[in-house]
Simulated assay, not measured.
Amino acid sequence: MPFTSSQIRAAAWVAIALLAFLVLRALGPVLTPFIVAAVLAYALTPLVDRLAASGRGRMPRALAALVVELLFLFALACIFLLVVPVVAKELPLIRQQLPTVLDRLDAAVAPWLNQFGFRVSLDLASMKERLLGYLNANWSTAFPSLWTSLKLGGSVALTVLGNVLLVPVALFYLLLDWKPFVARVLELVPPRARPGVDSFTAECDQVLGQYLRGQLLVMATMAVYYSTGLALFGLDLALPIGVFTGLAMFVPYLGFGFGLLLATFAGLLQFAPGEAFLMIAVVYGSGQVVEGFFITPRLVGERIGLHPLAVIFALLAFAQVLGFVGVLVALPASAVLLVAIRRVRHGYLASRLYQS
């Protein structure tokens, strides 16, 4: 039975997708800085376009790309200098406050459990002794161990440093030549298939652009919100935890969950358990309501359109297969797959096979 032209084209596209997947998996560590740069370039290209078009188009695009990239790197440096010193200053306090936290938990939890008939007896003295002994021993050997690890894994450290330095370079060239680069890729599409590919890429661009650019605004807004809310409750680590929670929302659910755990732990170190849980409930509970019903619908719209379980599955599946690169490409790739699935479903519903 001879194959039709549509079946041959479908098989060719499947083969191309499979080949791209195998290349991405094999060259994941090498492609990581380029993928990071590509994601950033996609999000920052509209700013470069607007800046280059300002002043009646007199600003060279190279200068506009350089200005946008420097502003972006300056924002990252400000966040780093804002968060790291505060955390480094507060970390030694954890060792001092842990015994108090254990006493507070025992005083708050044990009477509450007794009301329901649960008799809990905690050997707090032994727990504190073992925990403090572990922390003191590891604290004194942390920096020597870190230095030894850096010496033993010097090649890994150099690789990470090389990738960090390569991202800005790749980002500049992608910002400079983004449109010509996309145009050269589209030139490889056969003329007969060009209308369908253009429609497909336009829909993908709408979905991805709405998500990436809107999500950046959501992250910045929620970082301010969580920092302000935690600061109003008097949390010492309000600024770094709030900024981290907002920025970590780029990874849906996982980032928010990790920020929630950090805030809970910091609150238990500083406040009584009841006050800490009240702070978490008010700040993070109201934050989810504000973000889910007001900020995200206005800034991002319907986002990618994926169900929350589908987002979690995509993150775990891509991370399992491709590692860190998979986390970076999970949501963009899921958005493209979603557009493709919608088109396949629409074609199937309009086909004779379904109507018969």
Rank of each mutant, 00 (worst) to 15 (best):
residue 71 L to R: 06
residue 327 V to C: 06
residue 343 R to F: 00
residue 24 L to K: 05
residue 71 L to N: 02
residue 5 S to G: 08
residue 247 L to Y: 04
residue 89 K to S: 15
residue 350 A to N: 14
residue 177 D to I: 04
residue 162 G to D: 03
residue 315 L to P: 01
residue 234 G to F: 03
residue 311 V to N: 09
residue 326 G to S: 07
residue 221 T to S: 15
residue 236 D to S: 14
residue 266 A to I: 00
residue 4 T to C: 00
residue 245 T to Q: 07
residue 48 V to A: 02
residue 96 Q to L: 14
residue 294 F to T: 04
residue 55 G to H: 15
residue 102 L to A: 11
residue 48 V to L: 06
residue 64 A to C: 08
residue 331 L to A: 14
residue 239 L to A: 13
residue 325 V to W: 01
residue 173 Y to A: 07
residue 290 V to L: 15
residue 97 Q to V: 03
residue 109 V to P: 03
residue 116 F to D: 09
residue 241 I to W: 04
residue 340 A to M: 12
residue 335 A to W: 03
residue 348 Y to M: 11
residue 142 A to P: 09
residue 244 F to I: 13
residue 292 G to D: 09
residue 212 L to G: 08
residue 320 Q to D: 10
residue 163 N to Y: 00
residue 350 A to E: 15
residue 200 F to K: 05
residue 26 A to Q: 07
residue 345 R to T: 08
residue 51 L to V: 07
residue 123 D to Y: 11
residue 141 T to I: 05
residue 140 S to L: 14
residue 193 A to T: 00
residue 18 L to K: 12
residue 257 G to Y: 05
residue 245 T to E: 01
residue 185 V to Q: 09
residue 117 G to H: 00
residue 32 T to C: 00
residue 161 L to Q: 07
residue 129 E to L: 12
residue 242 G to T: 13
residue 41 A to Q: 04
residue 150 L to G: 03
residue 17 A to W: 13
residue 124 L to S: 11
